[in-house]
Design a protein around this nucleic acid. Structure first.
Lengths: 222, 222
DNA sequence: AAGATACATATTGTTGAACAATATTACTTA
DNA sequence: TAAGTAATATTGTTCAACAATATGTATCTT
């Protein structure tokens, strides 16, 4: 891979800039799970010192994107089946919490509707990568219904982990396809204030999605 | 304050050991909120290098116990009213999620019952610091009903933040007193499998507790 | 006296080299 | 082949240095 240097900008410290960049790469699946990241190599690659890189590693480790083994170094996280199950458990609790917390006519609902429609359009064009991005954004927005920065931060972490899983899969492309319609009807239920319906839609979505991810993960591990 | 050195042990890296120690101090209210922590001073205090300390700061910042302002340094977090409100929002979503997720006769229920009783006994002795610790432990355990390491981790973060708030208060002593009985009846409802009752107990608890903390915080800020 | 300016000082941001402690690899020998 | 040992590489941590930014102080102006 070609070296990347001068990531430093005015508003972002070098540490944060490199952390953002590595997070990007991780989410995009540019590393293989479990791969070792040597301090020497990586610091040379980004043209930064080992000391600075170690701060970066601490940051990403606290976000569960890297795994840290004392005296052995830092490795790309390799979420296994248990991790996926746990991630979906978090999603269920947080997203159900959002549905139960939403006041009818919450302004954020409008953004959700727009994203749901955007997903539909993109699905027609067949740009599945984009569909995935929009789908994630849809669910992120759902959690913002809670108006809770801490819940949103927690949710962002697990979504990033989930993207790490997607990066491991060969065929993550169609993983979002069947859910576009579910998103739309979920929004509809929320707009009507029909909490019970929204929850069952959500639960259906999460169960299906979890199964698909687990299956794809097992296929990939073969 | 007397210097503390040689925190290094076999199983804990120096960075982690110092992070743990500072977290302890923060939770115990040994620093004042908003207080600046200078790299020079603190690294000298613990007998570690600035580089290592910076890793520590990154860890604690990611746990919201410290606040980081670029080029200005690191400060003890000073959770305000908005933070408290948000913390209780997280608690409600996570703990309600736990109540809704619990299978009857979950082994963890036994630990909750034991903690509830322990709280009762300690209340009689009047050791309010211990009562507070046990109460926290009770609620931590409740979230463990989810069997989700990620949810527990998230909950641990907000509980630590909450303790930071307590540290700011003059009279945090009796802040746990009225809730001991509520904890006991909450366990009772869970053991009976009466989810609805458990949720309303929980909600009552959280609302009262939130109000008390907010009031005490405003008093302390005066 | 209040406010702006410029200088001096302290703090943070980052680096590179160094060395001890721990892992990994390669090699030797039974 | 297996075990043991030496050689090598990597991590853990420190230190000293310097640039960039922030803070404090003395000075000047009106």
């Amino acid at each position: 891979m070609a070296d990347e240097k001068n990531l430093h900008t005015d508003d972002l410290s070098l540490t944060e800039a490199v952390a953002d960049r590595i997070r990007q790469l991780l989410i995009a699946g540019e590393f293989s799970p479990g791969q070792k990241l040597s301090e020497h190599q990586v610091s040379a690659h980004f043209g930064i010192s080992r000391n600075t890189l170690r701060e970066v590693f601490r940051l990403l480790t606290s976000q569960r994107l890297l795994t840290y083994i004392p005296n052995r170094g830092v490795f790309v996280a390799a979420p296994d089946e248990a991790a996926v199950i746990d991630i979906y458990r978090v999603r269920f609790v947080l997203q159900r919490g959002a549905v139960q917390a939403v006041a009818k006519a919450h302004p954020t609902l409008i953004r959700m509707r727009r994203l749901a429609e955007q997903g539909r359009e993109l699905a027609r064009t067949g740009d599945w990568r984009q569909v995935g991005t929009i789908n994630m954004e849809f669910h992120r927005t759902m959690v913002e219904l809670c108006d809770s920065p801490r819940l949103s931060a927690c949710f962002d972490l697990v979504l990033a982990e989930l993207r790490l899983v997607f990066g491991q899969l060969e065929d993550s492309a169609h993983l979002h396809e069947p859910y576009i319609e579910l998103n739309a009807s979920l929004v509809a239920a929320l707009e009507l204030g029909d909490t019970a319906a929204a929850i069952s839609q959500l639960e259906a979505y999460l169960i299906k999605s979890e199964r698909a991810v687990l299956a794809a993960l097992q296929r990939a591990r073969r």
